[in-house]
């Protein structure tokens, strides 16, 4: 049972360590978090379920965060939901409409600040 005020964040990240770290950090900040280790798992989510923010890793074993972002931004239901991309490749030539990008390894505080900023703006 999540409180109404609780913002929900969907995380797609294949690396267990990073996924757990981010989940820990966000949960510590009172966010509601759902994690998906693969693109496939993410695509299986109930269509009506829309979070307040998507945090997507770009390189996935069965897909690409950029493609997911592209789809989300195409879909009228999710178009306005902020998307933050993450990658170990510091430079990203295309963002596919994502709202922000965080290079790995990231600074914990900076990650939280950027997510907060996106949520505040939406």
């Amino acid at each position: 049972m999540k409180p109404i005020a609780m913002k929900e964040i969907f995380i797609v990240e294949d690396d267990d360590g990073i996924r757990e770290l981010i989940e820990f950090l966000l949960v510590s900040q009172q966010y509601s978090v759902k994690t998906f280790p693969t693109a496939r798992a993410f695509n299986k989510t109930v269509p009506g379920e829309i979070p307040d923010l998507f945090l997507l890793d770009i390189m996935l074993p069965d897909g690409n965060g950029l493609d997911i972002c592209k789809d989300l931004k195409k879909d009228t239901a999710t178009r306005s939901v902020p998307v933050v991309l993450m990658s170990a490749h510091a430079d990203i030539s295309r963002m596919e409409g994502a709202d922000d990008f965080i290079a790995k390894p990231f600074d914990v505080d900076e990650l939280l600040q950027r997510i907060e900023k996106q949520l505040a703006g939406s």
């Binding site: 690396d15 360590g17 990073i18 770290l21 820990f24 170990a88 790995k104 390894p105 990231f106 600074d107």
Partner: peptide, 24 residues
């Protein structure tokens, strides 16, 4: 090299994150 550096960064991200959490 691209793959290796990506793979190296992944654990670095986790290590850095937890160290920062600890430091707080």
């Amino acid at each position: 090299i691209a793959l290796a550096s990506h793979e190296l960064k992944t654990p670095l991200t986790t290590i850095k994150g937890y160290l920062q959490v600890l430091a707080k």
